[in-house]
Computed example of a mutant assay.
Amino acid sequence: MVDQPVRRVFVPPQSGDPNPDQPPPLNPARITGVASGFMTAKALFVAAEVGLFAALPDDGATAETIAQRCQLPVRSARAIADLLVATGLVEHDGERYRNAPDTEAFLAGRGPLDMRAMLRYWDLVSYPTWTRASTAFRTRQGVRAEQLSEEQTRAYESSVALVTAETAADLAEAYDFGPHTRLLDVGGGIGTFAKPILRAYPRLTATLLDLPDVVDVARAEVAADAFADRLDLVAADVFVDPLPAGHDVVVVANFLHLFSPERNLELLARLAEVVAPGGRLLLVDWFRDPAAPHPATRLGSGEFLMISGGDTYEASDVTGWLDQTGWTPVEHLPLAAPAGLIVAERVG
Rank of each mutant, 00 (worst) to 15 (best):
K42R: 15
A43L: 04
L44G: 01
L44E: 03
A47R: 11
A47S: 02
A48Q: 00
E49C: 10
V50H: 08
G51A: 00
L52S: 12
L52P: 06
F53K: 08
A54P: 01
A55K: 11
L56G: 02
D58S: 04
D58F: 01
D58N: 06
D59M: 08
D59S: 13
A61W: 01
A61K: 00
T62E: 09
A63Y: 02
A63N: 08
E64T: 03
T65R: 09
T65M: 12
I66C: 07
A67I: 03
Q68T: 15
R69K: 04
R69C: 05
Q71A: 15
L72V: 00
P73S: 10
P73C: 04
R75S: 14
S76K: 11
S76N: 14
A77N: 12
R78M: 07
I80C: 13
A81Y: 06
D82W: 06
D82S: 03
L83T: 12
L83M: 14
L84N: 04
T87A: 00
G88D: 07
G88M: 04
V90R: 05
V90S: 11
V90A: 04
V90D: 02
E91D: 05
E91R: 13
H92C: 06
D93R: 05
G94K: 10
E95N: 10
R96S: 05
N99E: 10
N99T: 05
D102T: 15
D102L: 15
T103G: 04
E104G: 14
E104L: 15
E104N: 10
A105V: 12
